[in-house]
Every structure is written in C-alpha cells, then in structure tokens.
C-alpha cells in the first residue's frame, strides 16, 4: 500500500464521521448522507495525489459534499421527497417527550425547505459560517444568502409545527 493510500485512509478515518454528520443535516436522511459522502470521497480518492495538495483539504471536501448535495444530478437521481411524518404526530400521544416531538416537527419543517435554503441554514447555524463565506460556497451574492435565510426562517415559522418567537416549538400546528 502506498503512502498516498495511507494518507487517504487516514483522512477518511479522521474526517469521515464529520462529513457524514454534515451531510445528514443537509439531507435529513442517513442513507442518502452516507451515499453522498462515499461518492465524494471515492472520487477524491481517485485523484488523491492531486487533491491532497490543497491547502484546506477539510473545507475542500465539505464544499464537494455541498456541491454534490445541490447538484442537478443528485436531484434527478434521488427524487427526494420530504418525509410525511404528520401521521406520526397527528394526535398528541401521552407519555411522549415533548422535546422529541418538537425536534421531529422541526425536522419535518426543514425537510420541506428547498435544498439551497436548507444548505444556507446548515452553513449558518451548524457551521457558524458568515454570510460572505456562505455566498462564496454557494457561488452567489451575500444578499442572496440573506434572502434565502430569511425565506427559510419565514417558512419554518409559518409551518404548522414551526419555530416560534419565544423559543418554543409548537406542537399543535398553530403559531403562538
């Protein structure tokens, strides 16, 4: 086994879990997240001798995962549909933790967002990236990033089980 292969395996072992976590937040689907990350890492591994010379390799691979998530090929192939979890939370079930229910409701609202809006929220509130970096990653202007974020937050707030201004998540399907 060559040293390049060793360094590639070391990179996957060191950063693979973080990449899958990032992809899970983008896709909200564990299997699709692993699919994206494996696809990206396999392609990078084939040209590892060249890619390994990139300055910030971790940021490079994160951007590759983001691009794959937003790519038209992935959109055509995956046929992503937001999961319909309404049957699961249609009636309040006694004994179920409200926090768990609220988390699932927020997750459902996130799943209904357009991909680019979800990516903006993940980059802004999970990676804590400034809008300028998000705009650079997405290849758009900062004003566009702010517009995406504003629309996403409005959609989450307007969702039947969306965010509320006082910090609680509604579970009754109405805004407080």
């Amino acid at each position: 086994m060559t040293s390049g292969e060793d360094s590639f395996e070391a990179f996957v072992l060191a950063h693979g879990a973080g990449l899958v976590g990032f992809a899970r937040r983008l896709t909200l689907d564990h299997h699709r997240a692993e699919d994206i990350v494996q696809d990206v890492l396999a392609r990078i591994g084939l040209s590892w001798a060249k890619v390994s010379r990139v300055d910030d390799l971790r940021a490079y691979v994160h951007k590759a995962v983001l691009n794959d998530f937003l790519s038209w090929r992935r959109r055509l192939s995956s046929r992503e549909r937001p999961a319909d979890l309404s049957w699961h939370h249609g009636e309040p079930v006694p004994g179920v933790d409200d926090a768990v229910a609220a988390r699932d409701h927020l997750r459902l609202a996130l799943a209904r967002l357009p991909r680019v809006q979800r990516a903006v929220l993940v980059l802004r509130y999970y990676h804590d990236r400034p809008d300028s970096q998000i705009a650079e990653l997405l290849g758009c202007r900062e004003a566009t990033v702010r517009s995406h974020a504003r629309r996403a937050l409005l959609a989450l707030r307007a969702a039947p089980t969306g965010l509320t201004g006082d910090g609680d998540l509604t579970s009754e399907g109405t805004l407080r």
Partner: peptide, 25 residues
C-alpha cells in the same frame, strides 16, 4: 430565540449517532 432553537436542533448529537468511520472507509 428562534435562531437558538434552530442552532440547538442542528447541533443535536442524535444526528451524529451511528456513524462508523471504518464502515465508511
């Protein structure tokens, strides 16, 4: 607060469970 809610949701450690680095490799 809504930003804090969203941030806490996205940092939920449950989203990082079950990731096997060796399986990924």
């Amino acid at each position: 607060d809504e930003h804090a809610d969203l941030r806490s949701h996205l940092h939920d450690p449950a989203l990082d469970e079950g990731i096997s680095a060796t399986g990924l490799l």
